[in-house]
Write a protein that binds this DNA or RNA. Structure first.
Lengths: 126, 126
DNA sequence: GTTGATGCAAAAACTTTGCATCGTG
DNA sequence: CACGATGCAAAGTTTTTGCATCAAC
């Protein structure tokens, strides 16, 4: 754990668990806090934090992957995404987790994680 | 409907509905059939076919988006993805569709489509 | 000192766009 | 002819990598 890695993880922790940031977002937000870390290091660290299980990697919207804090109280949660404005809401569902688990078991896969992505149009964009 | 568009859609139809292709994949497979279409046109056409509802756009794995044929008998289906080798299996679940629908309704969103992505490790990669 | 992490810049991978040209009606 | 679609090449984005330097043990 280097200072840079701590700063990046701390950023996610400060923002809370419902926030989705791209690598650029992380870079910009750290700059606003006068923390200067190269984009290359941010990419490397995000990858690392995902592998270590601190972050979750999302591929919801255009313009690159997003990362979010994986909090223990919300292991598998789901996303409702407005395809027009990008607004995303999170929700949970025990049933969905069970479906994922049984799908994995049926085919002999070892389950890691399951997320339901619901694409929709939010009230403001209708 | 131009010859190029027909060729691209025909490729998906020939391969069937469980196949996930990147833009590059489409380009390569068409070349193997001696069909020469520029990558730019392929990107434009894939976008078009998604908008027209013929294809579904996926963001499952590394290396760019994938596209699959949207068949009428499988409107909302789900993916079990091996994070090691990229093998993906499809399955369906009525329950998951219902969860997506009610999540959208709860927040006043207009539902378009919902897919459950289950990340796991397949038997061969365990 | 050795090892791994960082920053920078260059490169790679993926996607879009401008523009001239081609095809179809 | 008019219109939109295509191909090509250039540009734009996002992400990775090589390499010299730096920091920690």
């Amino acid at each position: 754990m280097t200072p840079q890695r701590r700063k990046i993880l701390a950023l996610f922790e400060d923002l809370g668990s419902g926030i989705h940031l791209s690598a650029e977002d992380v870079h910009d937000k750290l700059l606003n806090l006068d923390v200067r870390i190269s984009l290359a290091t941010i990419y490397r660290t995000l990858r690392l934090l995902v592998d270590m299980g601190f972050l979750n990697e999302l591929e919801l919207s255009e313009g690159g992957h997003r990362f979010e804090l994986l909090s223990l109280d919300k292991p598998d949660h789901h996303h409702l995404i407005c395809i027009r404005c990008g607004r995303t809401e999170e929700f949970e569902s025990e049933v969905v987790i069970k479906v994922g688990r049984s799908a994995a078991e049926d085919l002999g896969f070892k389950l890691l994680e399951s997320t339901l992505n619901v694409r929709a149009i939010c009230p403001a964009c209708k």
